[in-house]
Amino acid sequence: MRYARLNITWNGQNGDLPDPVSWHASDKEILQWATEAVRSGSVPGITKTHNVQLHRFVVDRFPANKQVPEDRIYVRPPTPFGAFLGDASRGINPCE
């Protein structure tokens, strides 16, 4: 099983989940885990927040390299503009 460190940005704060997550998890799963982690206050560096909304956020995956010797997954806000509907797998759905 391949694991990755999950980093979350929310409400001006940023932190890593203490336990690694599956590298192969879907974006939807990652966003759900991140949401639950922030709601439960289990992300060091991020204040426990009940009404956290991460379902529109984006999941970036970076494999380990010489500088960062572990797989990393980042949950961050999306930044597209305009009529671009994006890729549904990137968590951007204007109809939600």
Binding site: G12, F57, R76, P77, P78, F81, G82, P94
Partner: peptide, 27 residues
């Protein structure tokens, strides 16, 4: 950001970006 076609209101994608970035930044 620009809207070359002249539309002076945000698209639904723009609104998602506005909200999500503010949520991420906390302000």
């Amino acid at each position: 950001h620009t809207h070359p076609a002249g539309v002076d209101q945000p698209s639904s994608i723009d609104l998602v970006t506005f909200r999500a970035c503010e949520d991420g930044l906390g302000r």
